[in-house]
Amino acid sequence: MNAGRTTDALLYLDGVSVSFDGFKALNQLALLIAPGEMRAIVGPNGAGKTTMMDVITGKTRPDTGDVLFDGGRHDLTRLDEATIAELGIGRKFQKPTVFESHTVEDNLRLALKAPRSVFPTLAARRTAEEKARLDELFATVKLDAQRRTQAGGLSHGQKQWLEIGMLLAQDPALLLVDEPVAGMTDAETFETAELLKRINRTHSVVVVEHDMAFVRELGVKVTVLHEGSVLAEGTIDQVSADQRVVEVYLGR
C-alpha cells in the first residue's frame, strides 16, 4: 500500500495484529476509511470485528501495526480511550449501553461536546446554546417524548437510538457503530438505516453488521473480515459473488 495515500485517509489501519493466548484475533489487518465515507463491515463470528473496534478506540493495544487517524495526524495506538473519543471517534456498542439511572436528557447532556476535564465539569451550567443543541438532537433521534424518562425504562430500539444520539452529541468525525439493528423490528431496522444515512451526510461512519438486508439497504462499500484479516472488499453484490466469501460466510 502506498504510504503517500495515508495522509488522505480519515482512518488508516495497516498490518494490525492482536493475539490473545496464541489465538490471533486480528492478523495483518489493513483498512482505509476516507473522509465522509460510510463503510459496512461484515464477517462471521470471531472474524475480529469487535477486536478491530477495540483497537481503534484504544481499548486494546495491537501487538503490531499502525492505526492512524485524521490523515495520519494521530497515532491511535498511543492514546487512551478518553483522548481518542475527544479527537472525534465515537463508538456505539453491540449491546446498547446507556446510563440507565440518568434521564434521556442527562444521557445526551453528558455526551454533548464540552470540556471533559474535572473542574470545568464541576462548574458547568446549563446554557441556552446547550439547550438548542439538545433540542436538535431530540429531533434527530425522535425521543422528545421520553426526555425526562430514566434511560433504563426505554425499549431496546429506543436505547439503540439514544446511543446513536449520544454519538451524535459528541459530534465525532468518525462513528463506529456495532450491530445497530440487532433485535430490532423490520420497521425499526429500516428507520435506523435511514438515520445512519442522514448522519453520514455530515459524519464518516463504520457500521459492523450481520444483517445482510440492512447492509444492502445502506448501499455502501462492504468489507468482509475473516479470521482477523480482510477477505474481500467491494459493493454488496461484488462480495456476495465472491466464492471465498460465500464459503466462509454467506454459504454456511
Binding site: 490473545f20 493466548d21 484475533a25 469487535t50 477486536t51 477495540d54 486494546t60 456498542f93 449501553t97
Partner: peptide
C-alpha cells in the same frame, strides 16, 4: 493472569 477478549459492554 488469564488473558482474553473481555466480553464486557
Amino acid at each position: 493472569a488469564q488473558k482474553g477478549r473481555t466480553a464486557e459492554s
